[in-house]
Measured scan of single mutants.
Amino acid sequence: MTEYKLVVVGAGGVGKSALTIQLIQNHFVDEYDPTIEDSYRKQVVIDGETCLLDILDTAGQEEYSAMRDQYMRTGEGFLCVFAINNTKSFEDIHHYREQIKRVKDSEDVPMVLVGNKCDLPSRTVDTKQAQDLARSYGIPFIETSAKTRQGVDDAFYTLVREIRKHKEKMSKDGKKKKKKSKTKCVIM
Rank of each mutant, 00 (worst) to 15 (best):
K101T: 04
V103M: 10
F90E: 11
H95A: 05
T124L: 10
V81N: 05
M67G: 13
N116P: 00
C80W: 06
S122D: 14
E63S: 05
N116C: 15
I100W: 08
V81Y: 00
G75Q: 06
C118W: 09
D119R: 01
D119M: 03
C80D: 02
A66N: 08
S89G: 05
N86M: 03
P110F: 04
S122R: 09
H95L: 05
H94L: 11
V81P: 03
A83V: 03
M111W: 05
D105E: 13
F78V: 12
V125N: 11
S106V: 09
V81Q: 04
G75F: 10
C118Y: 08
M111V: 06
V125W: 11
D92L: 05
G77E: 01
M72G: 10
P121V: 09
V103A: 09
I93G: 01
E98F: 01
Y64D: 15
F90A: 05
R97F: 15
R97W: 15
N116I: 11
V125P: 11
T124F: 10
L113N: 00
F78G: 00
L120N: 01
D119F: 00
V112I: 13
F82L: 08
R97Y: 15
E91A: 04
E98M: 02
I93V: 10
E76I: 14
R102Q: 05
S122K: 09
T87R: 10
D108P: 07
M72L: 11
L79P: 03
G75S: 11
L79G: 00
I84R: 11
R68Q: 13
L79T: 00
M72N: 06
T74C: 12
R68V: 09
L120H: 07
G77H: 01
E98L: 02
V81R: 00
G115F: 15
K88Y: 08
M67V: 10
D69C: 02
D105L: 04
V114S: 01
D126H: 08
H94F: 04
D92C: 01
S122I: 10
K117S: 11
A66G: 10
E98K: 07
D126A: 08
A66T: 10
L120M: 11
I93A: 03
T87L: 07
K117T: 10
D108Y: 07
G75D: 04
K88Q: 08
G115P: 05
E63C: 03
Q70E: 14
F90R: 03
I100T: 01
Y71L: 11
E76S: 10
L120C: 12
P121C: 06
R68E: 14
E107Q: 11
L113T: 01
Y71W: 08
R97V: 15
V109Y: 11
T124C: 10
E91S: 01
V114G: 02
R73W: 07
E98P: 01
L113G: 03
M67P: 12
P121F: 09
Y71R: 09
N116D: 05
R97G: 04
M111K: 04
K88I: 06
D108W: 08
L79C: 03
V109W: 04
V112W: 01
E76N: 10
Q70L: 07
D69Q: 05
A66D: 12
I84L: 15
K117M: 15
C80E: 03
I100H: 01
V103F: 12
Y96V: 12
I84G: 15
C80Y: 10
I93F: 08
D69I: 00
K101E: 07
Y64E: 15
T74Y: 10
N86S: 12
M72H: 08
E107G: 09
Y96W: 14
V109L: 04
K101F: 14
Q70V: 04
E98S: 06
V103Y: 15
S89F: 03
R73N: 06
D119T: 03
L79H: 03
F82H: 08
S65R: 06
R73G: 12
D69F: 00
Y64N: 15
S106C: 14
Y96Q: 03
D108N: 10
R68S: 12
D119Q: 02
R73S: 12
G115C: 09
L120T: 08
H95T: 04
Y96R: 01
A83N: 15
T74M: 14
F90D: 00
E76P: 01
R73F: 04
D108Q: 08
A66R: 05
N116V: 15
E91F: 03
D126I: 07
K101N: 07
R102P: 02
A83C: 04
E107A: 12
E76D: 15
T74A: 13
A83I: 00
R68I: 04
P110V: 03
R102C: 03
R123Q: 12
I84Q: 15
I93R: 00
V81E: 03
F82Y: 12
V109G: 02
D69L: 01
T74F: 09
Q70N: 10
Q70D: 15
N116S: 14
D119C: 05
D105F: 02
P121S: 13
D92F: 05
F82N: 02
S106H: 08
F82I: 07
L79W: 01
S65W: 07
K104Y: 11
D108A: 05
E63I: 04
V112N: 01
I100S: 00
K117N: 13
H94S: 08
Y96A: 04
V103C: 03
R97E: 11
R123N: 13
D126E: 11
K104Q: 10
E98G: 03
P121T: 12
Y71C: 08
M72E: 09
S122P: 09
T74N: 13
R102N: 05
V114M: 09
S106A: 08
V109A: 03
N86L: 01
P121D: 13
D69H: 04
E63A: 02
V109T: 04
T87W: 05
D105S: 04
D105G: 15
Y64T: 13
M72R: 06
V114L: 10
R68A: 13
S65F: 05
E107W: 14
R102E: 09
R68M: 11
L120R: 04
T74Q: 14
C80T: 04
D126C: 10
D126L: 07
E91I: 00
S65T: 08
F82G: 15
Y71S: 11
D108M: 06
K101Y: 02
V103L: 15
V114Y: 01
F78I: 11
G75W: 09
I84H: 15
N86C: 04
R73H: 06
I93E: 00
K104C: 11
K104E: 06
E63M: 03
L113Q: 00
R102L: 08
E107P: 06
C80N: 03
G115N: 04
D69P: 07
S89Y: 01
R97M: 15
C118N: 09
C118H: 06
T87G: 13
Y71Q: 15
P121M: 11
R97I: 15
R123Y: 09
S89A: 08
H95R: 13
R123A: 14
R102I: 05
L113R: 00
M67R: 09
A83R: 05
H95W: 13
E91G: 06
R68N: 15
Y64W: 09
S122L: 08
D69N: 06
V114Q: 01
R102M: 08
K88F: 03
S106D: 09
C118E: 11
P110G: 01
N86R: 03
K104N: 07
T74V: 07
V112A: 01
M111R: 00
Q99I: 06
K88W: 14
V109R: 03
L113D: 00
E91C: 04
I100K: 01
T74K: 07
E91P: 04
R73P: 08
H95V: 05
R102G: 12
V114N: 00
R68C: 08
V109Q: 02
D108S: 08
M72D: 07
Q99R: 08
Y96K: 05
E107S: 11
F78Q: 00
Q70A: 06
F78D: 00
S122H: 12
A83F: 02
R123D: 14
V109I: 11
V114E: 00
A66L: 08
E91L: 02
R97K: 07
V81C: 10
V125E: 13
V114W: 01
D105M: 01
C80G: 04
D119G: 08
V103K: 05
F90V: 14
K88A: 10
R73K: 11
Q99T: 09
I84Y: 15
I100N: 05
K88E: 12
F90L: 14
A66S: 12
Y71D: 13
H95K: 15
R73Y: 06
S65C: 09
D105H: 09
K88P: 03
D69R: 05
K117V: 14
